[in-house]
Amino acid sequence: MSTEGASSYGDLPAVATDSPVGARNSMDRLYAPPALSERLIRAFLMFCAALSIGTTLGIIGVLFEETRAFFAQVPFSSFFGDTQWTPLFAEKHFGIWPLVGGTMLTTLIAMAVALPFGLTAAIYLSEFASATVRKWLKPALEILAGVPTVVYGYFALTMVTPLLQTLLPDLAAFNVLSAGLMMGIMILPVIASLSEDAIFAVPSSLREGALALGATKLSTVFRVVLPSAFSGIGAATILGVSRAIGETMIVAIAAGQQARLSLDPREGMQTMTAYIVQVSMGDTPTGTIEFHTIFAVGMMLFCMTMVLNLIAQHLRGRVLKGSL
């Protein structure tokens, strides 16, 4: 490259002529060290990437600090041993189980809807549907996954609950059943889309091998393809559960605000997320025990979803590495 050519492109540096070409045996010496601007840009980009670590540290730090303040006033044994959760009442109890129970029950109902429907849809899309159907349904699923959850909450409270009340007359106005059902519909596209990716990624040589041995299409799908995609489907399911546990607006709107340890989905129950919303809506002074509770509950929520996400990532990592 001529020096005139290089100077007309200010940001294209000329090949350094003063570098001792051939003087060292290291290849690094064949070009000049990066310009200062280049190093600054690199440093800035690195800072951007490191910011994500800062976010995680921030989340853990904030939750840890406030949770510590909470446990300075409430004993551990009460948090994990008590079966009542009434921090906003005069007579305070700090047992987390009613909130965890409410969360688990809604998650269970949601998964009971999302898993069978989502998985069947995924199998159909991957193995049976024509290319045109796939081309239209996949983006449709992704758009559905982007609908704000407050909209699903509105559906659950104003339409699904009245509809269900005609079938189940003793259904409460705020109940876990319709919140869970709606949450299942919300998570369905997530599970369908992720499982479809996993099933589609199974090498076609496996299908062809099974078919060549005389297996029918159905037994190929259920006895060869699905077992091979097991890790990916497992990851999709766990991510779905994690989404359900962390989902806030549907349960805050439709599941009610009584922290109650029960198994009856016709009643209203409060979830961990709904409790945080309830406290945030009121004017709770910072530094009070009520204020600390939302961080303790948040810590519980964070730990549960974190464990699930790590398991899901591990499973997906196995899929990527090919050792199904």
């Binding site: 994500s52 976010t55 921030g58 989340i59 600090e65 996400n309 899901a312």
Partner: peptide
């Protein structure tokens, strides 16, 4: 790994972070 994990953190937790920070 951290970025993938952050994408899975429930949004309400970000609210708690924002409230405090």
């Amino acid at each position: 790994v951290n970025i993938r994990n952050l994408a899975g953190v429930p949004s309400i937790i970000y609210g708690l972070l924002g409230l405090e920070v």
